[in-house]
Write a protein that binds this DNA or RNA. Structure first.
Lengths: 202, 202
DNA sequence: GCAAAAGTGTTAATTCTACACCCATGG
DNA sequence: CCATGGGTGTAGAATTAACACTTTTGC
């Protein structure tokens, strides 16, 4: 029986400057050896924390798929990480996904990860993991825009997102410069929640 | 570095008696050793054909995800197979997924595969691989119903499916018993095609 | 002529889209 | 008082959902 070398490969997403970015090391997605481990999820977490030195915290982590090379098999995970929870120094290694998706070897993986992420934000609350505990609707909208790569109508976005009942107001206000203060919201649950297609009529 | 034994595990779907069924061997999903191989997709095809003795043909095959056990790693694929292309003898090993999803060890995998399939039929033409070349709209509807596990309105279903422009009439008629003959259709493409959200206005 | 499955339209409800102005604040 | 970003409503279009009767055929 053939035994390949097994690695966990990570697509670590974060948003800075309103751009969806991915962590690269030497122009490749970071990689870690798979050691004997109770589960692949735990192995991915371990590599993120031990090897890349980023805490998982309440970030979202999910398996993407597995890809084979001549003598190597990579189980790919993607991770969503709020940029405030990443050390400044590390943030320099994050690159706008659109640029890298043309150049690097792992381009196909990155493109697929973005596709998966785009689907996922449509029917879950998964963006919570790219945002701080509290945020304004504008921040949330910019997050969606960065992921989808298109701009959204402010009024329609607010109507839609509020109708999903995933958010609750924190009654706090955020001042940005000298503008009107914005109401702040938080996710009711900071864990993966699927959007109800049929709203419970309350 | 730890090297696990690598297997390909298959969730082979087919529809008989208007039920979505899955192939089991000894109450488990069939398994094959991963040999050195140009790609995982090819390895899955090889195992399907050599080990389980079912031709892939133009059936749909896609990687689902990878799951680890203490000394074994299984890369799971799912396959959609039209029952006419399966030998009668083999069909006896197919079991209604709803029943097995409670009993067998691989239940979680089967449930996830069904979920993936349900999503996939909503926005692609992937059901082509569960149907013969030509079929009636009723057959198509029953296929959807078997997968979704709910019944659909005949008129709405026909309107919707025809508006997607995935089908073309073959101008043939199918007689079933002594009822009115039904018009037969085929898929324009028997390969994965995503549904256009924005219809080209023609 | 009747059993069996095919085929067909309309209406109301809902959701989606496009679109522009006033508000609260700090400087 | 003005620059900045926050906040809000409506009308038309498109989509979805609910619903029942007529047609064609073989026997």
């Amino acid at each position: 029986m053939w035994k390949a070398e097994l690695f966990i490969k990570l697509v670590i997403f974060s948003i800075t400057d309103n751009k969806l970015k991915v962590l690269l090391k030497d122009n490749r997605l970071p990689l870690g050896e798979l050691e004997e481990s109770p589960s692949l999820d735990k192995a991915a977490k371990r590599i993120l924390e031990k090897k890349i030195d980023i805490r998982l915290g309440d970030s979202f982590l999910e398996q993407l798929y597995t890809v084979s090379y001549p003598d190597e098999i990579d189980i790919v995970y993607y991770i969503l990480k709020h940029s405030d929870s990443i050390p400044k120094e590390k943030l320099k290694s994050f690159f706008s996904w659109e640029k890298i998706a043309k150049n690097i070897k792992d381009a196909e993986i990155v493109r697929y990860a973005v596709q998966r992420l785009r689907w996922k934000i449509e029917y879950t609350n998964v963006v919570y993991s790219l945002l701080p505990q509290e945020f304004t609707l504008s921040q949330l909208q910019k997050t969606y825009e960065a992921i989808l790569g298109e701009s959204l109508d402010k009024r329609n976005f607010r109507k839609k997102i509020l109708s999903l009942k995933l958010l609750k107001s924190t009654r706090h206000k955020k001042m940005i410069g000298r503008a009107r203060p914005a109401e702040m919201f938080s996710f009711r649950k900071r864990e993966l929640t699927f959007v109800k297609i049929l709203q419970p009529t309350d």
